[in-house]
Design a protein around this nucleic acid. Structure first.
Lengths: 238, 238
DNA sequence: TGTGCGATATAACGCTGTTATGGCAAGCAC
DNA sequence: GTGCTTGCCATAACAGCGTTATATCGCACA
């Protein structure tokens, strides 16, 4: 009661507690009674402020999309659009690894409790803010304008890139790549393969991928990757 | 009791009912009481035969992997290994679309109820039978032996291909590609891009992709895709 | 003809999301 | 200041969930 008391409104404290529980203990910890205890209130608070568990999950997912978009928008744009695409892929992965449960609900189509976010709302949430997908499209456009990629529909090419990145991250999260290799043996070669297939000069691709790899190693060396560069998507609170 | 009575043992009837419920009504329909009603028994049957809900889910997942492997092993091997890889991708997708909930549990890392299959068991299940991933590796080896793909570690290249296919399917299932294009505008171009990036001659790639597309259209024209060619992964019963 | 043992039905426990009820405190009309 | 309305919250309840303890049934075997 008093331990968690602060001036922040109950509504945002509920969302924060939900994100924290989801991040630290997984979906099964996200119960109405647990949530109420966490913010020092009764379960009724959940229903007066949100209407029910589904709406609270929706709020957490929206928060997750906003943070993912912010994290990807924070990736610097260099003179090398192909390297930028690689950096975006790594940012995408870092977010997923920082909060796998939320990622599963946002982009993996996973239900949370007995509630599953409808696809239409997922897409709408994804298009808000600076739009995760839009950043990919923009970098793809630059790669085409620079003559790195063959001309084509940037949205279609971005969808291909997104499929590849997303698939790698999902397999990695599900553990299907364990024992077998990791980012440097699957993801970056995959990006190189796709870049080459899209028309990029092999030597230019090699330079871009090397740049991405050096960024990755620099971040990994600087500390825990999920902490470096801005908190990722986890809503862990201070 | 009499309506579902047959000589089949209760154990397999429980697994079948679970797969049917999961396929037709989704995860929230998969409850112990519902399952018991479905086979005309009490909930105790579940515990005497399986020990609990998690073990039953495990049995359904094993069944799903077996059917997926059988479905992919049924893809014919032609003289064109790149086209074969495309056909495998389409078979993979057809299975996922035929039973999206089961696919999410098997390969999407989605929890079922309050139970989530441990990654280690997923991988073990995947390696059984003819091993879904092994079929991919085998086709990749042939593509390398035929000079279509540059030489390299087939397992690593297969992991890249799997990531791409899996990512497309997950995004498609989650609805993130809706409005935007479909198999023919994202998946087959993605496979063509990767083949080209792996060293395949562009014209050879075009021929292989055209062959895959014609197969796809032939199947789509022959009837519902999920019915053509052997029941897919759904355990729908007669 | 017992006899033992596995499978099952019944009922309960603690948990879940949800809601009906009642009280409490703040804001506003007069 | 008094009375009323309105919104927020605590309490307690309800149906449903997975699970389990107990008792009963039925069948194989000595």
């Amino acid at each position: 009661m008093a331990s968690t008391s602060s001036e922040r409104p109950v509504r945002v404290r509920l969302v924060e507690a939900a994100a924290r529980l989801l991040s630290r203990e997984g979906p099964q910890a996200l119960t109405a009674r647990r949530l109420a205890n966490e913010v020092g209130a009764s379960t009724m608070a959940l229903y007066t402020h949100f209407g029910g568990m589904p709406e609270l999950v929706r709020a957490v997912v929206d928060e997750g999309f906003a943070r993912l978009a912010a994290h990807m928008a924070a990736v610097p744009r260099t003179a090398d659009p192909v390297a930028d695409l690689g950096s975006l892929a790594l940012a995408y992965r870092a977010n997923a690894l920082a909060n796998p449960h939320l990622y599963g609900v946002m982009l993996g189509g996973a239900p949370l409790g007995r509630y599953r976010v409808p696809p239409a709302e997922l897409i709408e949430g994804r298009r808000n803010d600076s739009d995760t997908f839009g950043v990919l499209v923009e970098a793809t456009k630059r790669a085409m304008a620079d003559g790195r990629f063959r001309s084509g529909d940037p949205a279609v090419v971005s969808a291909q890139l997104w499929s590849a990145i997303h698939g790698f991250v999902m397999l990695e999260l599900a553990g299907h790549l364990a024992g077998e290799p990791d980012v440097e043996t699957v993801l970056t070669p995959l990006l190189a393969t796709i870049a080459a297939g899209l028309g990029d000069d092999p030597e230019a691709t090699a330079r871009s991928v090397a740049a991405v790899r050096s960024h990755l190693r620099a971040e990994a060396g600087a500390g825990a990757p999920r902490e470096a560069g801005g908190r990722a998507v986890a809503v862990d609170g201070p």
